[in-house]
């Protein structure tokens, strides 16, 4: 049982005109066994929240706290957060030329698990996980994300999720840019992870269609840098019908 707890989080990003506050007091608690969806219009700060949790150096936390099972996440380096059990599936996964996917996955698994996985079981584990996501085995020899299509990158993000088995996974617009088949495959991957054990999911999305595949327990509406409303799955249905207008007006600065 794990809990990611975000309290009154304020985050700024450096701009040419000085620091600009993006997150303005986010409160959110995600426990394992739960799937939370964060929905909101473009520019509301959803991705900033994802990056702040992962510890991207571009984003500065000015106040508030993030803890994982009581441990201070903000005091951890990026890699320490991952080893503590946090995972971010990125909206734009980064290309790392020269490093093969196979080598990358093994290095990551070694770091997260604290020891190198036994070669024989590892090869089988990777093969199975790739097959589950419809990834051709030849991708293992390719450089990390290099020349991958948008859909291929997203499949590989979920592949890493499956292999690294974090306590809490943040999925940042994992559904964007996917065709219907890819969306189904990726969603199934997330559901397998979620059902495999004591895992929590924070799903960030702009669209409701992924929620047809991944059933959220809680839906949060994000606007103006904070959570403006939370509810059950029915909240997503309302958004589907009426859009974000009601919330963007509510979240707009006075």
């Amino acid at each position: 049982m794990s809990t990611l707890e975000i309290k009154d989080l304020h985050v700024s990003v450096a701009t040419e005109d000085g620091p600009k506050e993006i997150l303005k007091g986010v409160d959110l608690t995600v426990a394992s066994g739960q799937t939370h969806a964060i929905m909101g219009p473009n520019g509301s700060g959803k991705s900033t929240l994802a990056y702040a949790i992962a510890g991207h150096p571009k984003y500065e936390v000015t106040s508030g706290s993030i803890t994982l099972d009581g441990e201070d996440v903000l005091a951890m380096s990026v890699d320490e957060r991952a080893r503590a059990g946090l995972f971010l599936a990125m909206q734009y996964p980064v290309e790392v030329p020269g490093v093969s996917m196979a080598n990358f996955l093994r290095s990551a698994a070694t770091a997260v698990r604290g020891e190198a996985p036994k070669l024989r079981t590892w090869v089988k584990e990777v093969k199975t996980a790739m097959a589950d996501l419809g990834i051709d085995p030849s991708f293992a020899d390719r450089s990390v994300n290099e020349g991958f299509s948008g859909g291929e990158k997203k499949r590989h993000e979920v592949l890493q999720l499956a292999l690294l088995k974090p306590k809490i996974a943040v999925l940042d617009e994992t559904d964007s840019g996917l065709d219907v088949d890819a969306l189904r495959v990726v969603s199934e991957g997330v559901n397998r992870y979620r059902e495999s054990g004591d895992a929590g999911v924070l799903l960030i999305t702009h669209y409701t269609r992924i929620l047809n595949h991944i059933r959220p327990d809680v839906v949060h509406v994000f606007a103006g840098g904070r959570v403006v409303e939370s509810g059950g799955p029915e909240l997503a249905e309302e958004l589907e019908k009426h859009g974000y207008v009601r919330f963007t007006q509510a979240g707009a600065p006075a």
Binding site: A54, H56, D79, A82, L88, S107, A108, Q160
Partner: peptide, 17 residues
């Protein structure tokens, strides 16, 4: 950042690359 976000420490990430 990408490599570190997968748990890989900075020095290992550099070595890997």
């Amino acid at each position: 950042f990408y490599l570190q976000s997968r748990g890989i420490p900075e020095d290992v990430a550099r070595r890997l690359v």
